[in-house]
Write a protein that binds this DNA or RNA. Structure first.
Lengths: 154, 154
DNA sequence: ATTGAAATTCTTTGGAT
DNA sequence: ATCCAAAGAATTTCAAT
């Protein structure tokens, strides 16, 4: 699973993180290879799971889902099965874009994306609060997305 | 800037969010169009900014950056120029993948990605705490990324 | 707005270094 | 491990509906 990345690999990753549809010819050119070894490297990194997937990133605004809500959740029990059960339930809901198990007083941190406050209320009432084992919920709203990138500082 | 999406558009977006490299032939087939009108729709949504970009998503683990830290920051002043200045400084640092201006007692919420605790300490000491105007900082660590997706529930 | 086919460009394979 | 060149796919354009 461990794979030693050299400078060319890192350059390929940096470029593909910025433009996942860059043509192989361009990519090869920019890293100083010809297309076939460049493709070879890309395929190796895909198979190794270094490149997980290629996706289109949409604008939340443009599709009518401008609101990000961060929800901190404390469970009644931190036993592993309780945590796992909760995690699985959460992961099924499409409104939840990110979910982290956290250190500190709160167990989970979620980023939930909705159209407006009414939709958020619906999510809370019809989904989140119907789960068993929640001790407390705390919500904060994002007024502005100042930065949002997938680019890892490799 | 407003663009009315029909069912086919939404289907295209759903598919491209899951696989940004799906071939046009496949995509067209799955939404019940021939390639050219399908491409037309994609191009329109790209130009309208609905599709912001195409990217490769990497595994944090595999590239040696397994740690996500959420940092809540309160500023001394919430004046617009103070907020903007802070936002711009934050956005420049590659360790910061996400940054939100928030409601409530904390002004900013950041997701910072690092290799380990030592790298986090470096980030704090050499970057974040050197900014003027910070009243307080609070960090929580993600033990596990339970869900992380770009797929918006359109 | 969509079709279907032609033209172009890109990806992918394989033999040679 | 990389290069070059040929083969195979895919994207993109355009005249017609």
């Amino acid at each position: 699973m461990q794979h030693r990345l050299d400078d060319i690999d890192r350059k390929i990753l940096a470029l593909l993180q910025q433009d996942g549809r860059m043509s192989l010819a361009d990519l090869a050119d920019k890293v100083g290879l010809s297309p076939s070894p460049c493709l070879r490297r890309v395929r190796i990194m895909e198979k190794a799971g270094i490149i997980s997937r290629y996706v289109a990133v949409l604008s939340q605004q443009s599709v009518g889902l401008p609101v990000s809500v961060f929800i901190s959740i404390k469970l009644e029990s931190q036993r592993e099965d309780a945590l796992n059960k909760f995690g699985k339930a959460i992961a099924r809901w499409p409104e939840v874009l990110e979910c982290y198990l956290m250190t500190g007083p709160r167990d989970y941190l979620l980023r939930v994306v909705v159209a407006d406050l009414a939709a958020y209320e619906q999510f809370l009432k019809q989904k989140l609060t119907r789960l068993d084992g929640i001790a407390s919920i705390e919500s904060s709203f994002a007024l502005e997305q100042v930065k949002y990138t997938n680019v890892l500082p490799i």
